[in-house]
Nucleic acid binder design. Structure first.
Lengths: 154, 154
DNA sequence: GCCGAGGACTTGAAGCGTCAAGCATTGGGA
DNA sequence: TCCCAATGCTTGACGCTTCAAGTCCTCGGC
């Protein structure tokens, strides 16, 4: 018992981190929704597809890239498909997989959304940081992510 | 035009930050839900109340501390009130305000939840970081938070 | 060949958050 | 004194995420 409480420095960091985790996604969602009618998660899905050679990925892989559950992606893909931004079809090589492909209009939408989104990210995050802080942020993020993912599946 | 795209270092940092923003809250919610039947947001609300002298705060102030909208807090407070962890009453000094007070059982619940939650936070975040990185994280979080909040209300 | 196990995805229902109105109280001006 | 704007909070409807089954497909043992 008597758990190791957080010291002052850790508490300060923790408070800020929680603040960032709640406020930043909200700010990004808000910007993307206003200017492009997309969720931040939807943007990542389309963006991930747009960066692959043939604009196609398996659902499972896509879910991993977008940091979401397969169920979540499935619902979102359904909505995007209804809006004509995305198409799904079973993998010819193995019918258990589903391939998601970005459509032409999907590409246009994500291409139109990207500049504004990047501007927002730059304004909200990187403009306030020195290059050294950016590097260290990557390092810290990497360590935390590894830990969280290690915990999820052993 | 031609927006300033992110350089490699920034992209790396950004990818990690987004990963953390989606995976960490999920992990924390999961732990709190399993062990204490609380959302991370609910925990913060109860925790904030438990740290004030008389376990009482105005709704608006409480919402700010928990980094959530007033509407969100109102819904959550309704649920917590139904579960007997919280009580609300109009401020005698000014009827426009609502005072939220932690009940006895509310205090017990948050006290019982705290050790496991702190352990999880330590395990998921701070165990992987050096003290220098923790300090840096606080600094970076502070800057980002300031920026986001400055953007929200000018 | 068939049957069962297991993996990949989908679906439906329930819960939480957001948005836009709405209600209540106070304070100030006509 | 009465009204009206401003403030603080609440409510209801809608949309998204999660959780738990459920479906479909493939492969390996019999």
């Amino acid at each position: 018992m008597d758990p190791q409480w957080l010291d002052d420095q850790e508490q300060a960091a923790w408070r800020r981190l929680v603040g960032v985790m709640t406020a930043l996604p909200a700010a990004l969602d808000s910007q993307l929704q206003r200017e492009s009618g997309l969720t931040h998660f939807e943007y990542w899905v389309l963006s991930a597809l747009s960066e692959t050679p043939d604009r196609t990925l398996r659902m499972g892989c896509l879910a991993g890239m977008a940091n979401g559950s397969l169920s979540r992606l499935s619902h979102v893909a359904g909505r995007l498909e209804r809006r004509g931004l995305l198409e799904r079809r079973p993998d010819p090589a193995d019918g258990r997989f589903t391939l998601a492909t970005l459509t032409g209009t999907g590409w246009e939408v994500v291409a139109a959304a990207a500049p504004g989104h990047v501007r927002a990210v730059r304004r909200l995050v990187f403009d306030a940081l020195t290059p050294e802080q950016t590097t260290l942020l990557a390092e810290v993020g990497d360590r935390v992510l590894r830990t969280v993912e290690a915990e999820r599946s052993p």
